[in-house]
């Protein structure tokens, strides 16, 4: 029996590197169009709203609301077997409608989670190379 499997890690590419490098510094940045100000996430080479290529990363507040959530019961993803069942939330950032980040919601009972619940970002240092932005409920 193998030891606990490693969870999937991001395969960071040129488009996404600024997001992950900022996360290392415990900052949440989202790619934003400099022509129409639309936030694009995941990052794109062309703005999804106006098709401009003038895209740079800007800091965001890290606050948002729970758009939806589910409780995962299947051991489909390596490294998550010990945490089953686990919560996934879809966070809609306060900066723009329909701009989403996925997170887990650790140490929270299922009953405490509701759509519309307020959350804020925190940063989980996985190891020297990787920090994951995650969200927690605002009391």
């Amino acid at each position: 029996m193998a030891a606990t499997q490693e969870k999937p890690r991001p395969l960071i590419d040129d488009l996404t590197r600024p997001f992950w490098e900022a996360a290392r510094e415990h900052r949440l940045v989202i790619q934003r169009c400099q022509d129409c100000r639309y936030f694009n996430h995941p990052p794109r080479s062309v703005c999804n709203a106006c098709h401009s290529a003038a895209l740079t990363f800007e800091p965001v507040s890290g606050r948002g609301t729970i758009y939806s959530f589910s409780v995962m019961y299947q051991p489909n993803v390596a490294g998550f077997g010990d945490e089953l069942p686990y919560l996934n939330i879809l966070v809609e950032l306060e900066e723009q409608p329909q701009i989403f980040l996925v997170s887990n919601l650790s140490e929270v009972q299922r009953e405490q989670v509701r759509i519309g619940g307020q959350v804020e970002v925190y940063f989980e240092d996985v190891d020297a190379e990787l920090t994951l932005p995650k969200f927690r409920l605002i009391a």
Partner: peptide, 30 residues
Amino acid sequence: GAWSGNRAPGDAQFMAPYGCTSIFQWHAMA
């Protein structure tokens, strides 16, 4: 639908590290 890779490319890099890789998880949230 098991996720086999330990490096998540493209848009999956923002989902797989959180254990959210399957289409049924998205349908569940919808």
